[in-house]
Structure formats: structure tokens, C-alpha cells
Design a protein around this nucleic acid. Structure first.
Lengths: 211, 211
DNA sequence: CAGGGGCCTAAGCGCTTGCTCACTCTCCGT
DNA sequence: ACGGAGAGTGAGCAAGCGCTTAGGCCCCTG
């Protein structure tokens, strides 16, 4: 029933299931390099040396540098989508489900901020067909969040005049965590997730302090 | 008292006062290229050809490609800072000033989304000292927003348990507009600004519907 | 009208890039 | 013992990069 790694919210590296070992090291090296300098400023030599191998070894496991980005982007987007889908399909009131979606989505972006930064901000470097594929996943994510908000509006527990615009705002808030979050910073992923869940409930007019 | 172009919220190109004409065309070309493909994926030949000149002409007006980015980033950040400072120092209740700050800040990011995208997302490509300079301006912007929120908390009209975290969230919301806003899309800069101002008032517990 | 500065170009230099090639080493089934 | 597949390397190619150089045109000033 759960074909994913053990734990969606925990601290597992998202690339633990890639084989062989060298391929996994390459993906991990690419994630860190892309997150630090951006895709175009990262060289294949940089990725290979971070993975502890020669420049040529990269091409044994991946056809191009772009394929590495595609792998990262695709897996990351699917993980992000599954997080909000799980919240959408879960039990509870719309407010509880929206809070759960935001909390786990934000926690993922904070916990895996290196991966998330690549996933959210480097997709413009993908080849056309890969880009389109990833955009489709993003639209599904957007739709999942919107459907939770619509549920709340239909149930009369949310006060949201502009559902589409508010959905974009909620996702903005969550995604941007990947840009500024710093593991050495003041707050933990859990704290940010809780804070943001509360802020989003207020945004939809279902703030905890007002019923 | 106002050494800036005529209009901070209007539709003026932010580079209208650069001379000579060729330098202005180069900056404008660089902004568009950087926004579309990113700094590192943009070539000096691309910038020059967009500006209607030969590759070498770029170096008559700017020492390096990075200096072009610095010019864009510095001017853009200063403009953004002046927008929130104006709101902070303006008249009205904390709620009114916060709403004004968000409205004009968001409107600027939507209106000038091409410039804003470069300003907000390409600063990592700056040289170390230029980067530090720009970071200082960003901190000032953060501080200006935070001081408005603190005013509201002190006055007892905002309900914000975590001022620092909420400030980050508010800025996230505004900045991310530059990433997704599309001039051909559904909503105008004014509409987004109004929507976001309302959402932020709710985030700080000063929603219009509850006094 | 001489001449110098501002603005621009064609050509190209030195270097780095993504990627390939010929080859080696290690492991494993027969 | 050995051949073939998988995984890796050192060297290097073609293309593209940021940037420079040498020189030409135009206009302003004396």
C-alpha cells in the first residue's frame, strides 16, 4: 500500500533506493551542487569529483547532465505531490486536512531544503519534454491544495473569496521555504510547519482562535 | 526629498534614467535574458544581440557581465526597500501601513516581474562583496516589515506569537509573486496586491472581517 | 580643417564546457 | 583458467564561453 521509502516526513535521504551505489552518490552530489550554485553554474566535473570519481564516470550512469536534473526534479515533484494528496485524501475536517497538508508540505521543504531548492527553482533548465512532464505534476499539486480549500468553502467553514488566488498564495508560502530555510538557523522544520499551518488557516478564514 | 523616477508604483521602466542610451538598452536586454534563462545560462553575446549591438560593445559600458547583474540587483533591491520604507513611515494604523506595504510591494513584484525575478532569484551569482552589499539591503527590507508588525503587536491590534517567523512568511508571499506572476495571466498586479494585503492582515490576526 | 575622445565592430585569444574514446581493472559463471 | 560484462580512468575533442585587441567612423572643439 506504500511503495515509497519508509518515511515521508522523516530524515531519510530521498535517494536511498537508487542503485548502483555510484549512481546514488552522483545524484546526491548533483543535488548539493545544483542547490548551491544552480544547474548552469555546476559542471559535470564538479558533480563527479563530489561523488569521488572521474568526470567520465558520470556518463556510465546518466546520459547527460540534464538527465540528472530530470531524475531529481521528477522524483522530488512526485514526492511533493504525494504529500499533499495524502493530506487531501485523509480524514478530518477541511481545516484539519489543510493544516496537515501545509504542515507536512512545509516540513518536507525545510527538512529536504537542498533537494527542494533544486526541485522548485531549477526546473527551468529542463529539456522541453521533461519540463512539460514536471509541470503536469505541479498542476496536480496545485489541484490537490485547491480541492481541500474548495471543500472548506463548500462546507461553509472557510471564508475565501478568491479560491484560485488563495491557492497560489498558500503554495507560494510553502515553496518559498526551500529558498530561505537554513538547517543551522533558528527554527526547526517542525516549528516552521506548525507556524505555517496556523498562518494558512487564518488566510482561509478558519483561524484557530475564532472557530 | 525624492531622488527617484517620477513614480514608484506605476508602469515606468525602472531603467529609464540610465545614460547613454546604449547602456540602458544593455541593462534592459540583460534583465530580460537573465529573467528568462538565468544569469549563468545567459551569454554576453545574447545580451549584446538583444540590445542590437556586437558582443564587444557590452564592454564599453560595463566591465564584466557580473557588473550588469550587480547594477540590476542593486537598483532593484533599493527600489524594493524604498517601497516598504515608505509604507512603514507613512500615516495610519499598523494594519493600514502593513496593508499598504504588502499591496505596493506585491504590485511592484507583479508589475515588474521580469526585473523582480532577477533581483530576487539571481543574487546568488553576484561576486562576494556585491552579494554582501545586496544582502544588507534585504535585511533592511526585512527589518522594515518586521517593525510594522511589531508596531501592531505593541498596539495590541495584531495577534502574532512569532514575529520573526511571520515576517519571513509575509516576505515569502510577496517575493514569490515574481516567480509565478505572468502578465498574460488571469489577474492584474492591482488585484494580486489587494488580495495579498487582505491575506496578510488575516495572517497577523487583523483580518478585515473581525476588527 | 586637424585631431582627439566617445562609441562601435570584426576578429580572435585563452580557457572551460559537456561529452567521448580507447583502454584497464575487477568480479563471476563455466 | 578464462572470457565477457560492468564499472572505472586519463586524455582529449569540438564547441562555446567571457573578454580583449586593433582599428574605423563620427562629432565636437580649437
Amino acid at each position: 500500500m506504500d511503495a515509497e521509502p519508509k518515511n515521508t516526513g522523516g530524515k531519510v535521504e530521498p535517494w536511498g533506493d537508487i542503485t548502483p551505489d555510484a549512481a546514488r552518490r552522483l545524484v546526491s552530489a548533483a543535488v548539493h551542487a545544483f542547490a548551491e550554485r544552480g544547474y548552469h553554474a555546476t559542471t559535470t566535473r564538479d558533480i563527479a569529483s563530489r561523488a569521488g570519481m572521474s568526470p567520465a564516470a558520470l556518463y556510465i550512469h546518466y546520459k547527460t547532465k540534464e538527465e540528472l536534473l530530470y531524475q531529481i526534479s521528477k522524483v522530488g515533484h512526485e514526492r511533493a505531490l504525494s504529500i499533499v494528496e495524502r493530506a487531501r485524501d485523509g480524514e478530518g475536517t477541511p481545516a484539519e486536512r489543510l493544516a496537515a497538508a501545509v504542515r507536512s508540505f512545509v516540513r518536507w521543504h525545510a527538512e529536504h531544503h537542498t533537494t527542494a531548492r533544486v526541485v522548485q527553482y531549477e526546473l527551468g533548465a529542463l529539456a522541453a519534454e521533461h519540463h512539460a512532464e514536471v509541470i503536469a505534476v505541479r498542476k496536480a499539486t496545485d489541484g490537490a491544495v485547491r480541492s481541500i480549500i474548495e471543500d472548506g468553502v463548500k462546507a461553509g467553514v472557510f471564508d475565501v473569496p478568491d479560491v484560485r488566488g488563495t491557492t497560489v498564495a498558500v503554495l507560494s508560502l510553502c515553496i518559498d521555504v526551500a529558498r530561505w530555510f537554513n538547517a543551522a538557523g533558528r527554527s526547526t522544520p517542525d516549528e516552521v510547519g506548525d507556524l505555517y499551518a496556523g498562518l494558512v488557516l487564518r488566510m482561509v478564514g478558519a483561524g484557530s482562535g475564532q472557530g
